[in-house]
Design a protein around this nucleic acid. Structure first.
Lengths: 217, 217
DNA sequence: TAGATTGTTAATCGATTAACAATC
DNA sequence: TAGATTGTTAATCGATTAACAATC
């Protein structure tokens, strides 16, 4: 048994590999080289080989990687080979969009409970799920063995919701609110910050596009 | 006049600073130190000082940064001090959510046109905007001087939409589809990849949380 | 066998952090 | 003046890329 510290950058690339490998598999392609992957995903082939090599020897010299075998391996590494229950708080436009978007299903991640602070929404249905009041959160998280919470509430309420999730026992949070959340170590927080993506995009609009070159007086 | 290459990591932090500074400003706080910022945003104070110093001397030794002055400076750096027009393609749940979410307004970014490949949707209203057919895209982008395109279509159509945006003349794309897009240099693509965020979150769920430590046999 | 491609080491590159003189 | 905090250099740390022996 070996013990590694795998860097976050590596882990964040694995879902990108997985997604493209799934496409290949569906197209009936059985073998792929790091060269191919690199071209399609805009990554250095050496980086891809190195990333995968952290977890084992998945390829064959002179041949490449077997697509379905690699899919299986990455799914195992990311722990997508067993079901994981997810709860969502905040049934605004974005929250409802995510509930309907059940892409996660094939990756064994499933939204199984939805909450909203506005109790007048309790009982309404979103994609076969009944909206529940916040006071039910702790008990539902425990009953349904929910390990991940998605936050789609306005920024000022996000930290409060995160605290409730953490108290209830979730181990991971996916935050869509435009605010930096605090959590004790032991709880992992990923941030989907599309306002920041849009604002940083603005910076590049008038610049000469030679690898992040900028001019200032 | 000095010429820099500012790294992408630096640019991506500027909107985070800006957002928190806006909060401070609204709370009536006039001065902030890199120490304060670092604590609230989970960043190293030295990094914050260094980031800002790429663009000028915005602080005062022994005092800190004037909140409103720094806001003004960052807004200028990111080019948020002049209006920027945005178009969106794909009026599914996510697209509609983004149209309604006009947080961008105060940052001078405004969605001014919405398109959908499904022509039966043409003419419907989303938040005061009329959905238009794809064949109008090129002319509308030119007429309204649109420089950024948002893509919220299913993955298989995303590259095609990107190509149309690029042909029409946009210089930046914010892609929400779970696929890596290709573009010639000169067009900047940012990817909001929440499925990847969710899948990589799964990896950390059963791991001891000591800075990305993992164990494999 | 000849060509292709992995796994891995070494070299490079870039980003973060520590430290401190300058100065408010 | 004493305390605080910046701007900036140097040191550290980590991630990417190049190169190549191993081998299919």
């Amino acid at each position: 048994m070996k013990s590694f510290k795998i860097s976050e950058a590596v882990i964040r690339r694995l879902p990108i590999y997985l997604r493209f490998l799934n496409d290949l598999s569906q197209s009936g392609i059985q073998t792929v080289s790091s060269q191919d992957l690199g071209e399609k995903l805009d990554l250095n082939p050496a980086q891809i080989r190195k990333d995968l090599a952290y977890f084992g020897e998945f390829g064959r010299k002179g041949v490449g990687y077997n697509v379905d075998y690699l899919i299986e391996k990455i799914r195992h590494i990311l722990k997508l080979d067993k079901p994981m229950n997810v709860a969502l708080v905040g049934t605004g436009n974005l929250g409802r969009a995510l509930c309907n978007y059940n892409m996660y299903l094939k990756d064994n991640m499933k939204i199984v409970a939805v909450f909203d602070a506005d109790e007048s929404k309790s009982g309404t249905l979103i994609n076969h799920l009944t909206v529940q009041p916040m006071r039910e959160l702790t008990s539902v998280v425990k009953e349904l063995d929910i390990s991940v919470g998605i936050i789609t509430v306005p920024a000022p309420e996000a930290q409060n919701v995160a605290d409730q999730f953490i108290t209830a026992g979730v181990r991971g949070i996916l935050n869509f609110a435009p605010v930096v959340l605090k959590a004790h170590s032991g709880v992992r927080i990923h941030h989907v910050d599309f306002t920041a993506e849009l604002l940083s995009l603005a910076y590049y609009m008038d610049h000469i596009q030679e690898k992040s070159e900028g001019v200032f007086e």
